[in-house]
Amino acid sequence: MTTSEPGDGLTASQRELWIALLASRAAGGPRRAVKHLLQAGRAHLLTLIAELSEVERSDAHNTAVRLHDAGVQALLCDDPRYPDRLRCFAGSPPVLFCRGNVDLLKGSAVGVCGARDASTEAIRAARACGQDAARLGVTVVSGYAKGVDTESHLAALNASGSTIAVLAEGIDHFRVKTSYRGLPEAALGRMLVISQFPPGQRWTAGAAMTRNHVIVGLAHALVVVEARESGGTLKAGELALKEKRRLLVLAGSVEVSQGNKQLLTAGARRIGNRAELVDAFGRLDTEQPQQLRLG
């Protein structure tokens, strides 16, 4: 008589979730999990998972079934559907937990970031980013926070475009926020929600900073709408410059924020009006591919 092992009896998509839930723990952390998957291969990672306790593997089995039933799927970094532009980016996560249409990860994408307590001008600019991206068939990637994030997400969806919401917590904590509830079902169907964190992990400031790596990594260009002189938006812009991703910083006729000035001084491209924004969005596909990072 054979005995059943944790992970047995799962469908293919449930098994991907099971592996995703255990990968970082088995490998000794997210970065090591990426290396194991991209260098040693899936089979090697599975031997490490087999060394975990039966309780850990069984708990992951039950969680995988629950997540699958809730419409969640996992993209490990060795999956062909995992975007190359994120896979080659510094700090890329070993897994993305996803709810929605993962095909949105294939096309051109622009990251939009800015302050939660954004100014009136920044709110208008965030809406312009979402609208213009939608009209050009470019997916908006942002952080699902209030302020600039929400305005860019909603503007894209209301203009019949698509958007990717990158969470700063586990996907178990995702809820459709009040400001999105007036959208038609078809609009919500053009929204992909992703998280790199364990499903039950709660929001922290550190996770929000880490989440910004995914926003920058997924985007062909990052738009900074309004950055303070410190904080997550400024750090995201600095990351884009460091990793040689296109950085577009809004600097219209009204006084430019301190963080935007810092990024412009550091080498970001100034966007002074909407025509320049549209032109920049239209050139996203000219980006040169980067070499794959494994370190």
Rank of each mutant, 00 (worst) to 15 (best):
V102R: 08
E121D: 11
F89P: 04
T120L: 11
P94L: 03
A115N: 12
T120V: 10
N101K: 12
C113M: 15
A109D: 00
S108Y: 03
S92M: 11
V102M: 03
V95Y: 04
L105Q: 09
L104A: 07
S108G: 10
A90Q: 14
G107A: 06
S92K: 12
A125G: 00
L105C: 07
I123L: 13
P93Q: 08
L105D: 08
K106E: 15
R127K: 13
L105N: 08
E121I: 00
N101L: 09
V110K: 07
S92I: 04
A126K: 03
E121V: 02
C88D: 13
F97A: 06
F89H: 15
G114A: 10
A126H: 07
N101E: 14
L96H: 09
V95C: 11
D103A: 14
L96F: 06
V112K: 05
R127N: 05
I123K: 11
G107Y: 05
A126S: 13
A109E: 01
F97E: 03
V110H: 08
R99V: 13
G91W: 09
L96R: 06
C88Q: 14
A115L: 12
S92V: 14
V112L: 07
R127G: 12
D117I: 00
V95G: 06
P93E: 09
A118L: 02
A125T: 14
S119G: 11
R116D: 10
G111Y: 05
A115D: 09
P93Y: 04
F89D: 13
A109K: 15
S108W: 10
R127W: 00
C113N: 07
K106I: 00
R124Y: 01
G111A: 12
L96W: 06
V102T: 15
G107M: 03
A90D: 15
S92R: 14
P94S: 07
V110L: 11
R124N: 07
A118S: 15
A118Y: 00
